[in-house]
Design a protein around this nucleic acid. Structure first.
Length: 431
RNA sequence: GGUGGGGUGACCGAGUGGCUAAUGGUAGCAGACUGUAAAUCUGCCGGGCUCUGCCCUACGUAGGUUCGAAUCCUACCCCCACCA
């Protein structure tokens, strides 16, 4: 993000205006707008520590927090190290597995690191990280029942969509109680950090309002909530999936190249919406890009801009440029020039193979190693269906074996599945 | 606790003794067409192999009947509905 594009506006009233203008506002509690117009607030968003990395599906709330800070507020990142042990019934059709405590703790640390790319941890509105394990795990059951449970009727809880949706398939008492633990989080952050705003996906509405309810009852204070729309791609597919897997922020899970490709492949119908949600670009700049896109759809300028910006935001300018260069080299037509191979290897998914193994390695095995096939049978069928290529040349021989002659730059072989999935096989110097 | 219904591949959902690795739909993957888009059409879609074929695993779990079982029997586990 270029510094010229950062806009620092102090009036907090702009938060709602900005969020609304960019499509973040699904719903907000009565009074939220007036409160935010009155001055900067401290607000929080919770993240589940169910994996050791956040994924693009988490980006909307992350951007929400970032805007909060840019417009004068203090962001709190709440990591659910305690609630992660319970599991939110919202959006889930079935009971969630409960993760071991050690796993959750490790995930908490990883996620915290990733969020540092989006919010500043210094300055007068420095972001704070809180882990609800700190107050939820020591919490005694009797205290919880008295201090939190007493303020809610089961009738109220049954009204919540997240619970209603599970009345058919069943819901455990543990997950039923989830909203109370989240309500308690809000109450705790209100007291410990003066937090007056909670943001989250629209599936969090019930949990957020439960927290507001708790604070109103115990303290007679009105706090606020804002929820973001849940994203679906125009095609109806789940947002944030690619090749059947999540698109992660962790470069070790999703390479910068793949990350860039994910955004580049955005449906035309989603491009504008995504530019507003996932970049800090001024709305006028986005409108320009959309106009250019309409004039020349094949140029896909909006997607290019989106991919460039989001990749830079998550992985840095350098990685974004590298991913863009790799895309150009691979999709520019023809086989990539020899000299490009080393550069491609730096940003694309890759897999290492010992030099002693390469000669004579069956292609089907190489494809498995590269993760481009989940079984040899699948690899064989794919080859027969003209779905795989080596260094840009379609391979149709099921019994094909790799040979030193396949190496480019002495150590690279580019395997491709379909049009878009590439893995750079890199031969190790040793062994 | 009682009565009834049910547990099939990623999901939904057929299938009531051999022709069933199991109909159909969705999702996914690949091919064609394109703009690395959408829509459409085509193929694939449990795993392995010495691959016009062969072998293994699979229809909640464990046994049993049978030449042969997802299909029949027994026990157990789990889910749902109604009643208590």
């Amino acid at each position: 993000m270029k510094s010229s594009e950062w806009r620092t506006i102090n009036a907090m009233t702009d938060l709602i205006t900005t969020l609304r203008g960019r499509g973040f506002l699904q719903d907000l509690t009565p009074g939220a707008e007036a409160r935010l117009a009155a001055g900067p607030a401290t607000g929080y968003v919770g993240f589940d520590p169910t994996a050791d990395s956040l994924h693009v599906g988490n980006l909307v709330p992350i951007m929400g927090l970032a805007w909060l800070q840019r417009l004068g507020g203090t962001p709190i990142v709440l990591i659910g190290g305690g609630t992660g042990m319970v599991g939110d019934p919202g959006g889930k059709r079935t009971e969630r597995p409960i993760l071991p405590v050690e796993t959750i703790d490790a995930n908490v640390r990883a996620i915290e690191g990733q969020l540092r790319r989006f919010v500043a941890f210094d300055g007068p509105t420095a972001a704070r990280v809180r882990n609800n394990a700190d107050w939820l795990r020591p919490l005694a059951l009797m205290d919880f029942l008295r201090d939190v449970g007493k303020h809610f009727t089961v009738n109220y809880m049954l009204q919540k969509e997240s619970v209603k949706a599970r009345m058919e398939s069943g819901i455990s008492f543990t997950e039923f109680s989830y909203m109370l633990t989240q309500a308690y989080d809000y109450w705790h952050l209100y007291h410990a950090d003066g937090c007056e705003l909670q943001m989250g996906g629209s599936d969090q509405w019930g949990n957020i309002t439960a927290g507001i309810e708790l604070i109103a009852r115990r303290d007679g204070v009105q706090v606020h909530g804002v929820v973001f729309p849940l994203l679906t791609a125009a095609s109806g597919a789940k947002f944030g999936k690619s090749e059947g897997g999540n698109v992660w922020l962790d470069p070790a899970r999703t390479s910068p190249y793949e990350f860039h490709q994910f955004w580049l492949n955005t449906d035309d119908r989603d491009a504008e919406r995504f530019l507003r949600l996932f970049t800090f670009l001024p709305l006028e700049r986005i409108a320009d890009a959309v106009r250019a896109q309409a004039a020349d759809p094949a140029g896909r300028l909006a997607q290019r801009l989106l991919a460039r910006e989001v990749t830079a935001l998550v992985h840095g300018e350098e990685e974004a440029a590298r991913a863009e260069g790799a895309a150009k080299s691979i999709f520019g037509g023809g086989e990539a020039a020899d000299a490009d191979y080393a550069a491609l290897a730096a940003t694309m998914p890759s897999c290492a193979i010992a030099s002693s193994e390469l000669d004579g390695l069956p292609l089907v095995d190489a494809l498995m190693r590269a993760g481009l096939a989940s079984s040899k049978g699948e690899a064989r069928r794919g080859i027969e269906g003209r779905g795989y290529s080596i260094n840009g040349v379609v391979e149709t021989d099921v019994n094909r074996r790799l040979a030193p002659g396949d190496l480019r730059q002495g150590r690279y072989v580019l395997l491709r599945k379909g049009k878009k999935n590439h893995v750079m096989v890199e031969v190790g110097q040793h062994e």
